[in-house]
């Protein structure tokens, strides 16, 4: 999860680095902690840090973590040469480490050598069967080749063992959504909601999956989860506000409405008012467009 304060901190550090006087170690640490994918920046500043002998010697043993981070960033930016140097340095330092073996496998993946990568992961898994990250890499291999149903199968097997891994549940939900298997995706989001009931974005995801499935019952539930997203995000999440409006519109077109729903369109009009206010504050030139869209939804 990345909160507002975290996001501001990352942006501040990035700006400082751009102007040339930022703390690279702090930035890299924060990116690691928040699990952000800012590969280009990590690569650029990380390599500069590793090229600077005096800064490097100050890091002590942390330098190997940074080698690993830079290697992954280099793979993500398709800079295989830098990645190779990092992996080689790590292999010399830790020849028997499972973590470095995983990195080597990722390097194979980046080159498209799926079988070799898979072989590396398999051989390490035999020694350390409960290394969750290696299992996840095997899912990623299928995903990278576009074999989504195999990826889903592997991931389900993984989740049988590591049920509390909510990132894996989120990944499974994403895979199901891209295969248009919305009911299964909804199940994954239910698991996520149980794991982190305070996370507004999981409420939003669940609501969106239910809205996509459609049907009166699902729309009603979706509206409730959109509403809870609004509550948890302090009314700042525009997607949830639009969602409430759209659910209200879809429900008003069905005939199976309860009397309460017919009379009570308060939530919808309140959400519409907030959307309009946000647009007037932040993008005044689009406010007219938004108000006409919202007006159409009412009628």
């Amino acid at each position: 999860m990345v909160g507002v304060a975290d996001e501001m901190e990352v942006d501040r550090l990035e700006q400082e680095l751009e102007s040339g006087h930022g703390d690279v170690t702090e930035y890299l640490g924060l990116v690691r902690k928040l699990k952000l994918r800012r590969s280009a920046n990590v690569l650029k500043h990380g390599v500069a840090l590793l090229n600077n002998p005096s800064a490097k010697s100050k890091l002590g043993t942390d330098v190997w973590t940074i080698y690993e981070q830079v290697a992954v960033a280099a793979l993500d930016s398709d800079d295989l040469r830098v990645a190779e140097e990092c992996v080689k340095a790590l292999l010399i330092k830790f020849p028997d480490s499972a973590r470095v073996a995983r990195l080597e496998g990722m390097w194979m993946e980046a080159k498209g050598q799926w079988k070799e990568a898979s072989a590396i992961y398999d051989s390490v898994i035999q020694e350390i069967p409960f290394d969750s990250q290696l299992h996840k890499r095997k899912v990623a291999i299928f995903k990278a080749q576009g074999k989504l149903s195999e990826a889903a199968e592997t991931l389900i097997k993984y989740l049988d063992t590591f049920m509390a891994d909510h990132e894996a549940w989120r990944e499974l939900a994403n895979i199901y959504i891209s295969q248009q298997m919305y009911k299964q995706a909804a199940f994954c989001f239910e698991e996520l909601l149980l794991a982190q009931p305070g996370n507004a974005l999981y409420h939003l995801g669940y609501a969106e999956v239910l809205y996509t499935i459609g049907g009166v019952e699902n729309l009603r539930t979706a509206k409730k989860y959109y509403a809870s997203t609004i509550e948890l995000s302090g009314g700042k999440n525009l997607r949830a506000l639009y969602g409430v409006c759209l659910c209200g519109l879809a429900l008003s077109q069905t005939k199976l409405r309860t009397k309460e729903e017919k009379d009570n369109t308060n939530l919808q009009s309140l959400a519409a008012a907030v959307i309009l206010k946000e647009y007037k504050d932040k993008a005044p030139n689009k406010a007219d467009l938004v108000s006409s869209v919202l007006e159409k939804q009412k009628s």
Partner: peptide, 28 residues
Amino acid sequence: DAQENRVRQLSDDLDFMIFNHRGKLFAP
């Protein structure tokens, strides 16, 4: 729902990251 605590974005799931994406065509 406090202003500072609001979740803005989920962390990118780096454990499942794949490398044959459009980044290959748009190198830094």
